[in-house]
Each structure stands twice: as structure tokens, then as C-alpha cells.
Amino acid sequence: MSYMRKFITGAMLAAGLTGVSAVTASAAECIAPADPGGGWDFTCRTVGRLLTELGLEESSVQVTNMPGGVGAVAFANVAGKRASEGDLLVATSTVGVTQIAQGKYPGGVDVMRWVGMLGTDVGVIVVPADSDYETVGDLLDALKADPTSVPVAGSSGAGGWDHIRLLMLADAAGMEGDDYKAIRWVQFDGGSPAVTQMLGGQVGAVSTDLGEIAGFVESGDIKILAALSDEPIPAFPDAPTAKSQGFDVTGYNWRGFYTGGDVSDEDYQAWVDELKSLFDTPEWKEAAEGNGLITVWRGGEEFEAYVADQAKQMEEISRSIGVIQ
């Protein structure tokens, strides 16, 4: 819990103020900047649940879904109205930082305080289980023959991280400039809605994070053509990597949180410490790996420096493939 909630709770206990008339500590809130079912929603709900179950939070963490602009709506809301609220976390990831790097949010990474990351998701290219494409090479061959032949969807807009990962594969397959830019890209607000539309025949493939759509893999509705990881994914060891198929492409998407830029040092550090405590538990490791995440911790100043550096890298990649000038 935040410094202020710890202080209030401690004062209440010391004074014996446990009745309903006592001043109570405020509950923590986590904003998931997307509809229910996506990776940001998973991050808020899983972390919030574990913080409560493990006693790191006094009461249930409220989860608020605030979709729009691939996180831009939530970013603007916090920056404009809630910048100093020490009880607030916002789920984010490489996807959000990519949007910031491309100027699609109302401000740069310095507008917020970056709390920590607890794991990284792995990008995947998936198709319906009954698709004629058996390998990622099959899909890329079809796109090389006619870039408009297979609509591909993801949870980011054109030039976002899901799209960039597809273009990196296209580039590795030998497509160039106007050809891979001609690929038909469809944006949905989350990997789960994208897969649902794919199963309905609206698109032919999806580029997203495994953590967002693991349930569809487990149910057998879809198959993974390529995992964009260095090694096979522990939760799905039979899923082939792009590297194993001759395409030297990886695409990780870390999962973490920011809070408002005017949050006090005490509240900020309290969140860093609390998330690190969660990270060190077997419960988090089990929940993360069960959803295809690789557990990794960066927090506090280290994480802030990491985010700033990644924003620069995403800007360079975006320029190199012509997404921004």
C-alpha cells in the first residue's frame, strides 16, 4: 500500500479506531487502459488480486478499464486530473512506450513516474487452428506474393508495437519498403478481441502477446505460427520460435506500471517496494508463467532509466521503417 495509506492505517490501529465511523484508508486503484480481456487488464487484475491475497494491500484493488488510443486516454486522464494520486497505478508495457515514442500520447515518458516491471510477454503470430498456414514462412510467402492478401490484426495501431513486430518479420523475409507497408493492418483494442474477430473470419492472422490470448491456444481454437523469443516459451514448449524457422526476430513486451508525475517520493517508493515484494513470491511466479510471461524485475530509478532508453530505441526503429519521419 502507499505511504499515506500505511500511515493512516497505522494511526487508526494505534488509536483503536476500527469502527465504521473512523477515517479509513483509501483503496488502491489500477487503471487498465483497454477493454477487459487484454494484457493490460490481465496485469491489473492479476497483480491487484495477489496484492490483496498476500496481504500487501489492506483491501481489494479496484480495477478501472479505460480504453482508448492504445493507452492515450488513460495517460491523458492521469496527467490532467490525477497526477498526484499516490494510490493509483496504471498498467503499461512496451506497447505504450512505443506509442509515446511516436508522439501518439499527450506527453513524453517524463510526464509520469515509472514504478516497475514484473515480467515480459512474448510476441506471437497466430492463425485459426484450421488455417492452411502451417509455418510463419507460409504466411510470409503469401504476403510476399501479395501484401494485401492476408489482413493481419493486433492491439496497436499502424506503427505500434504489434505492427512493428510483423514488419520486422516481413523485413527478415526479404520484403522491402512499399511491399511490407502495403500489408493490410487492422487494429483492435486488445489481443483477445483481435483473435475473436479472426475466428469470425474478419482477418487472417494476429500479431499480439501470448499473455493476451493464451486461453485461445489452450482451447485449441488457434495455433502459434511463431513465438518471437530467443528460446521456446516454457508454458507452450511446442510452439516454434521465429528464429528456429530462419527468421532472426524477437519481440518481447514487458508488463509493468506507471503512476502520476506529481506523486510524492514516499508514495512512489512504497509502490516500488510493494511490487518488488510481490515479484519475490512464488504466487506471482506461478501466475506469470501460467500465462506465458517470463518473470523479470526492474523497479524505481533503474526502471525509469530503462523506459527512457526504450523510448529512444522505439523512436529509432519507427524512423527506420518509415512509421515516423
Rank of each mutant, 00 (worst) to 15 (best):
M1Y: 13
S2N: 12
R5V: 13
F7S: 11
I8K: 15
G10R: 11
A11D: 02
A11P: 08
M12I: 09
G16R: 03
L17P: 02
L17I: 08
T24Q: 15
G38T: 12
G48L: 08
L50G: 10
L51V: 10
L51F: 08
L51E: 14
T52R: 15
E58G: 10
E58H: 12
S60T: 13
V63E: 09
T64N: 12
M66K: 07
G68Q: 01
G69M: 01
G71C: 00
A74S: 07
N77T: 14
V78I: 13
A79E: 12
R82M: 13
S84M: 13
L88E: 13
L89G: 03
T92N: 14
Q99H: 09
I100N: 01
A101M: 08
K104H: 11
Y105P: 08
Y105T: 07
P106V: 11
D110M: 01
V111H: 13
M112P: 11
M112Y: 14
G119E: 14
V122M: 13
I125G: 00
I125C: 00
V127E: 00
D130S: 08
G137P: 03
D138Y: 10
L139E: 09
A142W: 10
D146A: 07
S156V: 03
S156H: 10
A158Q: 15
L166N: 04
M168H: 13
M168F: 08
M168P: 09
A170M: 08
Y180I: 12
I183Q: 02
R184L: 12
G190V: 11
T196A: 10
Q197N: 14
M198K: 07
G200Y: 06
G201D: 05
Q202S: 11
T208K: 09
T208C: 09
G211T: 11
F216E: 03
E218Q: 07
G220A: 04
D221C: 00
K223Q: 01
I224T: 04
A226C: 03
A227Q: 02
S229F: 01
P234G: 00
A235Q: 04
T241M: 00
G246W: 02
F247M: 06
V249K: 03
Y252V: 08
W254E: 04
R255P: 07
G256F: 01
F257R: 12
V263H: 06
E266I: 06
E266M: 11
Y268F: 15
W271V: 06
V272T: 09
D273C: 02
E274Y: 05
D280T: 05
E283S: 11
E283F: 05
N291D: 04
L293A: 02
I294Y: 12
I294G: 06
W297K: 04
G299K: 07
E302T: 10
E304W: 06
A305Y: 13
V307F: 03
A308Y: 05
Q310A: 08
Q310I: 09
Q313C: 03
S320M: 07
G322C: 06
